[in-house]
Amino acid sequence: MWRYEKRLQYPINIKKKDLWMARTIITQYGGPDGELSASLRYLNQRYSMPDDNGKALLTDIGTEELAHMEMVATMVHQLMKGATIEELREAGMDRHFAQRGNDLFLTDAFGNPWTAAYIGAVGDPVADLSENMAAEQKARAVYENLIELATDPAIIDPLVWLREREVVHFEMFRQLYDRYKNLNLI
């Protein structure tokens, strides 16, 4: 069961259209290290966690990633808002417009559609948690790349915030990982 609250986890108000930036940020929506991948990775692994603490942590982090997905979608939506056909064409988004119109779509920065192959699940909590720790570090690195590309503070601020969340989640996963290793639960 999930409930929706009609608010963003962290506010986003981008006023300046920037289609090139939208084309890069989209990878955190539907790319390999993006928020959909993160959410589904954790929510899918939680069923085989060996104790209730692990089930709780994967549920809670997986849930937060859904809120991050909404933030990233919001950024892309606001960056594209009001774009003219000419602007879309100049930014190389004519192909996106031809197929999707003004819809967002779950792709990486190259336009590759999201695939379940992005998420790992081997049924071994230590292996799965290692994968999650790596995923958080990769997402942190991608957010840093995006921060380098961005110039508008209205874009940089939520990117910096989302980057810090990756640092926090990494540490939470690491603590669970260490505990499982020490308990010899596997």
Partner: peptide, 13 residues
């Protein structure tokens, strides 16, 4: 809510 969620994850561990 953010602070609450942070504490929830901490308490999971």
């Amino acid at each position: 809510y953010f602070a609450l969620h942070e504490m929830r994850m901490y308490l999971d561990n």
